Measured scan of single mutants.
Amino acid sequence: TEIRININGVTIHVRDASEELKKLIEHLLRLGADEKEIREVLHRWEK
């Protein structure tokens, strides 16, 4: 699944996002995570 996240005008594009990762990101956004925090989570997730 491919997702695009727009945070304050900055688009983060994620290829091959699992449903689990998608739910995690949606949850973090609801909690008010910023772009830097989302990128950090994505970076750690890929490892």
Rank of each mutant, 00 (worst) to 15 (best):
N8V: 04
L21P: 00
E19M: 11
I5D: 01
V10T: 12
V41Y: 14
D34V: 05
D34F: 03
R30I: 06
I25S: 00
K23C: 07
G32P: 01
R4F: 14
A33L: 06
I3N: 03
E2V: 08
D16L: 06
E40V: 07
L29V: 06
L29H: 02
H27D: 06
L42N: 00
I3M: 11
R4V: 13
I38N: 00
E40C: 14
I38S: 00
I7W: 01
W45T: 02
L31K: 09
N6L: 11
H13G: 04
I5M: 05
N8F: 03
G32A: 03
K22G: 06
I12R: 01
E40Q: 13
R30D: 04
A17T: 10
D34A: 08
I25H: 00
K36I: 10
I25D: 00
G9E: 05
N6C: 09
L21D: 00
I5T: 02
N6Q: 11
H43K: 14
E19N: 09
T11S: 12
L24G: 01
E35M: 08
W45G: 02
E46T: 15
E26P: 00
L28T: 02
R4K: 11
I38T: 00
L31G: 06
L31Q: 07
E40F: 11
H13S: 10
E46V: 14
L24C: 02
K23A: 12
A33R: 12
R4Y: 13
T11E: 08
G9W: 01
E26C: 14
H43L: 14
K36A: 11
E46N: 15
E20N: 09
K22W: 15
E2I: 08
N8T: 04
H13M: 12
A33D: 01
S18E: 05
V10F: 04
E35Y: 14
E40G: 06
H43E: 09
N6H: 14
I38W: 03
A33K: 13
T1Y: 14
R15L: 12
K22I: 14
L42F: 03
D16G: 14
I25G: 00
K36H: 10
E40P: 00
I38D: 00
R4N: 10
L42W: 01
E26L: 15
N8R: 07
G32R: 08
E46A: 15
L42P: 00
K23E: 09
I38L: 07
T1L: 13
E35S: 08
S18I: 04
T1S: 11
T11R: 06
E2N: 12
D34I: 04
D16F: 13
E37S: 11
E2R: 05
V10E: 07
I12F: 03
E37H: 12
H27W: 15
R44A: 12
R39G: 03
L28I: 04
A33V: 10
K22A: 11
N6F: 13
E20G: 06
I12A: 02
T1E: 10
S18W: 03
E40K: 13
E40R: 14
R15N: 09
E40D: 08
D34Y: 04
I25M: 08
V14D: 01
I12V: 06
G32C: 02
A17E: 04
D16C: 10
V14N: 02
L24H: 09
K36N: 09
H27I: 10
K23Y: 13
E26Y: 15
R44T: 08
E35L: 11
N8Q: 07
S18H: 06
G9L: 05
L31I: 13
K23I: 11
E37Y: 12
I25R: 00
E19H: 10
E37R: 12
H43I: 12
I7H: 04
E40W: 14
I12E: 01
I12H: 03
W45K: 01
K22D: 02
N8A: 09
I5Y: 01
R30A: 06
L42D: 00
L21E: 01
E2S: 09
L21I: 06
H13N: 07
A17F: 06
L42E: 00
H13I: 10
H27L: 14
I38Q: 00
L31M: 15
D16T: 08
E19W: 15
V14E: 02
V10Q: 08
E46D: 13
R4C: 07
E37V: 12
K23Q: 13
D34T: 13
K47T: 15
R15C: 03
A17H: 05
H13L: 13
N6A: 10
D16S: 12
V10D: 05
G9M: 04
G32K: 08
I25E: 00
D34R: 06
H27Q: 12
R44L: 14
I5L: 07
H13V: 10
V41N: 04
H43Y: 14
E40I: 09
W45H: 05
T11H: 14
R4D: 07
V41I: 07
L28W: 04
N8P: 02
L31S: 07
I38G: 00
I25N: 00
H43R: 15
N8W: 02
E26W: 15
L24V: 13
H13T: 11
T11C: 07
L29E: 02
R15Q: 09
L21S: 00
E19Y: 15
D16V: 06
L28C: 05
I25V: 09
V10R: 08
V41Q: 09
I12N: 01
L21G: 00
N6M: 12
E46H: 15
S18D: 09
V10L: 10
I38P: 00
K47V: 15
I7S: 04
I7A: 06
A17M: 07
H43D: 06
K36W: 13
R15H: 14
R39H: 13
I3H: 08
D16M: 09
I3S: 03
L31T: 07
A33P: 02
L24E: 11
V10K: 10
K22S: 10
I25P: 00
G32S: 04
I3E: 03
I12W: 01
D16Q: 13
R44P: 01
D34E: 08
E2L: 07
E19F: 15
E26K: 14
I7T: 04
V10P: 02
E19I: 09
R39T: 05
E2C: 14
T1V: 13
L31Y: 08
I12D: 01
R44K: 09
L29S: 02
I25K: 00
E20R: 05
L28E: 01
E46C: 15
K47S: 15
G32F: 04
E35R: 02
A33Y: 07
A17Y: 07
E2W: 02
H13C: 12
G9Y: 00
K47W: 13
R30E: 04
T11Q: 10
R39P: 00
T11K: 07
E37I: 12
E35I: 11
A33W: 06
E46M: 15
K47A: 15
R4W: 13
E26G: 09
L24S: 05
D34M: 07
V41A: 12
K23H: 10
D34P: 08
G32W: 03
K23M: 13
T11W: 04
H27P: 01
E35Q: 07
T1F: 14
R15T: 10
E19T: 10
E35V: 11
E19R: 08
I25W: 01
L28H: 06
E46R: 15
A33G: 05
H43P: 00
E37T: 14
D16A: 11
W45V: 03
D34H: 07
L42S: 00
H27Y: 15
R30K: 10
V41D: 00
E2P: 08
T1G: 10
A17L: 07
L21W: 03
E46F: 15
R39M: 06
E20A: 11
T11V: 13
T11P: 04
I12M: 03
H27E: 08
E46P: 09
R30N: 05
I5P: 01
I38V: 06
L29F: 10
V41R: 05
K47R: 14
S18T: 10
I7E: 03
G32V: 02
E37N: 06
E20M: 05
K36M: 11
R44S: 07
G9F: 03
E2Q: 08
R39S: 03
L29C: 04
R4M: 11
H43G: 05
I5K: 01
I7Y: 01
I25T: 01
D16I: 06
E35C: 06
H13Y: 11
I7F: 06
R44E: 12
H27N: 12
A17Q: 04
D34G: 11
R44M: 11
K22P: 01
R30W: 14
I7G: 03
L31A: 09
I7K: 04
E2A: 09
E20H: 04
L24Y: 12
K22Y: 15
E19S: 10
A33M: 05
A17P: 11
T11N: 09
R39A: 04
E26V: 14
V10W: 01
V14S: 03
I3V: 08
I5F: 04
H27A: 14
K47Q: 15
V41G: 01
I25Q: 00
R30C: 02
I7P: 02
L21H: 01
K47N: 15
S18N: 09
W45A: 03
L31D: 04
N6G: 05
R30P: 00
I5N: 01
L28P: 00
I5R: 01
V14F: 12
K47C: 14
R15A: 09
E19C: 10
E35W: 14
G32H: 05
E46L: 15
R44W: 11
G32Q: 04
E26R: 15
K22L: 14
L29Y: 11
L24I: 12
R44Q: 08
T11A: 10
A33N: 03
K36C: 02
E26I: 15
E2D: 13
S18C: 03
I3A: 03
L28F: 08
D16W: 15
W45M: 04
E46I: 15
E35K: 02
W45I: 05
D34Q: 08
S18L: 04
R39Y: 05
R44V: 09
K22R: 12
V10C: 06
R39K: 07
L24T: 11
I7M: 09
N6E: 10
N8G: 11
T11G: 07
